[in-house]
Design a protein around this nucleic acid. Structure first.
Lengths: 235, 235
DNA sequence: TTGCGACAGTAAACATCGTTCACTCAGCTG
DNA sequence: CAGCTGAGTGAACGATGTTTACTGTCGCAA
């Protein structure tokens, strides 16, 4: 009856929850979000569909839970890549950007679910501006690397008074979640994140093939260009 | 029997096609792509569902046709904004960027259908690299403005030899579609387009609210920063 | 004018889906 | 051992996309 070890019932229950989410992900990958079917998941598990309602109140809730797991997965991959890149924040930024793209390219449908058009119900989880927002977990290591880089040596930015006037009033959530982040760092992070997100989403959503046959080449060029802009080129 | 004027049958038919697509868009806006229902569209038209199969071979084909229309709509809005902005290519770029964002913010669900995760069947229409790709129609006025700006006065870019080696082999579709586009212009256009797309998609897909309460402020700051980078600030 | 053929639309049916309800059965706890 | 909690089932409801067979109706040609 140790409080830390879950009871047998709880172990079985969480195993079932995991199996359901694995089945949902399999269907997601095979045929997109609309292919996630409670009945098919149940069939794959040797059960009937209503049994799943013991674990999730609706199909939508299951999809939301899956999306949360996926956000955690990509956040973990990115953070691990940053930690494995050594102490130089420039190298960390490059490694984390590449890790984000690599995860997206390897898991395109999952990327679409988490970072694409908000599925009704899934969009709500990114609406709150709390520091424990799953999206914030993803951004945190990037912000930390930018901050380390800034404290070592600042890079050129737009005039401070322009940013304070036009951006300052709306940066509250980001700056407070990271302890009085300098506005230059906040702006550079957001600008860089938008570029990273745009490049990756364009590639994964097939939005750039009409112009470019190898999106990775543009991605690498942009990394070089951006890192040199913030004075973080290793050489 | 004049060849230019369509026969009565053809007029009725194209009116029905339009009404079906209007109904589909209404359902799309109301409840997302999965809410588009043949039976509901037919009910709204005072018909039964199988009648729609006289006009579209499947629901998926209807969604694809709707997506094509929407791509044409946004391309038209952007081109019109560019033409209304006068002769200065810098002003044209700013106006077209704002028009793109404005359309996306005003039509978020439609934006998700056209520019978001590829719905099975819709993703295929952006796969080909032909010059008459609907996506190319959207990019053309941007490329034209960049080219005019470049011919007037070039801006600093990464070294030409780097781009020729790392980007040149993969830029064929874009450069050929615009008649021997200089590689500096091709790179700057793609980089800028990725930034524009990233900013807009982040805002419309609720991917930035955890950090920023007013995405438009960051959008405007990025416009200023980018235009000054390419030496196109009006002042 | 008459006839015919192409076309628009319908009704019924099938397979699938999410969801609810009443029910059974096993396992843990008092 | 009794009883309760929770997992799972089967049947049912309403909804979906799609197919099939059928019925009109309109327009064009002889």
């Amino acid at each position: 009856m140790t409080a830390s070890s879950p009871t047998r019932r709880e172990r079985l229950r969480s195993a079932a929850v995991s199996e359901i989410k694995e089945g949902a992900r399999r269907l997601l990958v095979a045929g997109g979000p609309q292919a996630i079917s409670l009945r098919q998941i149940a069939r794959d598990m040797g059960m009937t569909a209503p049994a799943i309602y013991r674990y999730f109140p609706s199909l939508e809730a299951l999809v939301v839970a899956l999306a949360e797991d996926l956000m955690g997965e990509v956040a973990g991959v990115v953070a691990a890549a940053g930690e494995a890149a050594g102490d130089d924040p420039g190298r960390q930024l490059a490694a984390m950007a590449r890790a984000y793209r690599a995860w997206a390219v390897a898991n395109p449908v999952e990327f679409g679910l988490v970072f694409g058009a908000p599925v009704p119900g899934v969009g709500e989880l990114a609406l709150d501006c709390l520091p424990d927002d799953p999206g914030a977990d993803l951004g945190r290591p990037y912000v930390a690397a930018f901050l380390k880089l800034w404290q070592r040596e600042p890079w050129p930015t737009p005039p401070r008074e322009y940013m304070l006037e036009h951006l300052g009033p709306y940066l509250g959530p980001l700056r407070q979640a990271h302890g009085d982040l300098p506005i230059e760092v906040a702006y550079t992070f957001l600008s860089g994140w938008a570029r990273l997100y745009g490049m990756v989403a364009m590639e994964v959503f097939h939005q750039v093939r009409w112009a470019l046959t190898k999106p990775e080449a543009l991605f690498e060029a942009e990394i070089v260009q951006f890192l040199s802009q913030v004075g973080a080129l290793p050489k």
